[in-house]
Design a protein around this nucleic acid. Structure first.
Lengths: 186, 186
DNA sequence: TACTCTAGAGAACGATCGTTCTCACCGCAA
DNA sequence: TTGCGGTGAGAACGATCGTTCTCTAGAGTA
């Protein structure tokens, strides 16, 4: 038998795959149990309700996102390049075969009529990303008003890529960000 | 008794309000029947399945969107102003008290794992909007590469406004579009 | 060996879903 | 008046949901 930490990771990973691919409400807890190989009883000991599991999935997504953004930024030298690297990160993500849009946006659209905790978790993630962009904009010496514009480009690229089903949106958004940065920096 | 045309409009209107406010899967057909004041039997004669009703809701949303965009554009003189008017239209929409994001994006995130017809309807709407923007960009004498950038700004503004729960995103996106247009037109 | 405790497998529960069916009732031709 | 086709109201159906309960088997301890 595996320990609770490993079981937790398996359950969250399985739920992430299923929820992201099929939508949250379309996936039953039985399907999570089968995919995770962890008994229902144990799932409910680790996560008292499905809502708790959804939040855990979003929190794991956030960690993966933050780590990916950080890794991409590390390969860039200047704040300006770190900002543009966000769009390279998106480009690589859009090309993954199972890309299906931003899970935060998808879950929010599906569940914001219900669980308050899901709403809050999604909002916190988007605020954190906005703050990250704002910090880089400041470090690049550009006016603060540029930050929400770049965040909106990143946001729009994600939904556009998901619906149009092509990765082109990343390049388009990057080009727009470059132009806005060039405008602001001279 | 009302005729089929009026009953259809009532059902689609009721379903639109409920689906948009609560999410599609969270709303049962019984709730639609109560809100619309039309019997289940008649609903199922007008719409053979819930999927058909969802598509009808999206088609009505598209008509309302197109009419709103057209009305806003009419008040603008030049292609450039018509492009920027899109963001004024968004601004007014974001300020409506029951604004909850773009229904197409929300439905897509919730249902794209399922109904193929919903996927197609959403994709068509976004393509049509992209084509509208592309036409205006062309008429404004700007390079075609600007069109997807402006579309992405509009898309991103919608999700950002929904999640952050403020209408500011419209003004930010408009400012970015203005800068990109100014860049492209000289 | 005998007892206790815990875990897993999955049946069971009540609620709710999309959809269909029943049935009393209406306007209208003969 | 009598019969009939179609209506609305809502009960009913089978499936599935999130969640809990039962039962069995095995590990650890005296």
């Amino acid at each position: 038998m595996i320990d609770d930490t490993a079981a937790r990771a398996q359950v969250v990973g399985a739920a992430d795959r299923l929820f992201y691919a099929c939508g949250v409400q379309a996936v039953g807890m039985d399907a999570v149990r089968t995919e995770a190989g962890v008994s229902l009883k144990r799932i409910y000991r680790l996560f008292p309700s499905k809502d708790d599991l959804i939040v855990a999935v979003l929190e794991r997504r956030r960690e993966v996102w933050d780590a990916g953004i950080a890794a991409t930024a590390e390969r860039a030298a200047t704040p300006r390049e770190k900002l543009l690297a966000v769009f390279d990160f998106l480009d690589a993500w859009f090309r993954e075969p199972d890309f299906r849009g931003c899970a935060f946006i998808n879950f929010y659209g599906e569940l914001s009529g219900g669980s308050e905790e899901v709403r809050r978790t999604v909002r916190e993630q988007k605020e954190a990303f906005g703050a990250y962009v704002a910090r880089l904009v400041d470090e690049a010496g550009a006016p603060a008003s540029l930050a929400p514009q770049i965040s909106i480009l990143a946001e729009g690229a994600q939904t556009t890529a998901a619906i149009a089903n092509t990765p082109d949106a990343a390049a388009h958004a990057r080009a727009a960000a470059e132009a806005l940065l060039a405008d602001a920096l001279d």
